[in-house]
Computed example of a mutant assay.
Amino acid sequence: MLIKDLQNCKAFVAGDNAVLRELLHPDKEEVKFRYSLAHAVVKQGETSHRHTLKHAEVYYILEGKGIMYIDHESVEVRPGQAIYIPPHAIQCIRNVGQDDLKFLCIVEPAWRQEDEKVL
């Protein structure tokens, strides 16, 4: 059985400037799936850097309020919403709430630094 505790996952600042903690990644754990799962935080008043990924991604909003930008569209997002981000889409998310914006990032196949381009 594999159980990962968020508090025991090392935090790091990703290329898009969000604070990430990787929960599950097939290159780092003995798991039989191709996706990666990370917990992300964008601090109050901040915006992640515009970037693209080679593969599709899903954000699942846990806490806070933000505006999601994908290519030429933007929409307000809130807890309980899942956002599909197509491969190669220009994306960023802005925290417009009073607290940290927290969300899960699911990338399939698993996120790799060489698949991301910060604009």
Rank of each mutant, 00 (worst) to 15 (best):
K65L: 09
H39N: 14
Q81H: 03
L37G: 05
G66H: 02
V41L: 05
A82L: 08
L37R: 05
E63Q: 12
L37H: 07
V41M: 03
E46N: 12
I90C: 14
G45N: 01
I83W: 08
H39S: 14
R78T: 13
H72W: 02
I93H: 07
A89C: 08
Q81N: 02
H55C: 07
A82I: 08
G64S: 05
E63A: 09
Y84S: 11
Y69N: 10
S48M: 05
E57M: 08
Q44H: 09
K43V: 05
I83Y: 09
V42M: 01
T52L: 09
H51N: 05
L62T: 10
P87I: 11
R78Q: 13
V58R: 02
K43G: 07
L37T: 05
T52V: 14
K43N: 09
R50S: 14
T47I: 11
K43S: 12
Q91P: 09
M68H: 03
A38N: 12
V77E: 01
P86Q: 06
G80A: 00
V75I: 14
H72E: 14
I93M: 08
A82C: 09
I70T: 03
E63W: 00
A40T: 10
Y69F: 11
H72A: 10
I85K: 12
A82W: 10
R94A: 14
H51W: 06
C92D: 14
P86E: 06
H49M: 14
L53S: 06
L62M: 07
R94I: 06
K65P: 09
D71N: 13
E63K: 14
I83D: 07
V77C: 09
Q44F: 06
Q44V: 12
E57N: 04
E73K: 10
V42C: 04
Y84E: 11
E76F: 00
Q91E: 09
V77H: 03
V58S: 00
H39A: 14
R94T: 15
A38Q: 11
Q44N: 12
I93S: 07
V77P: 04
H88Y: 15
R50W: 13
G80N: 01
E46R: 11
R94L: 11
R94P: 11
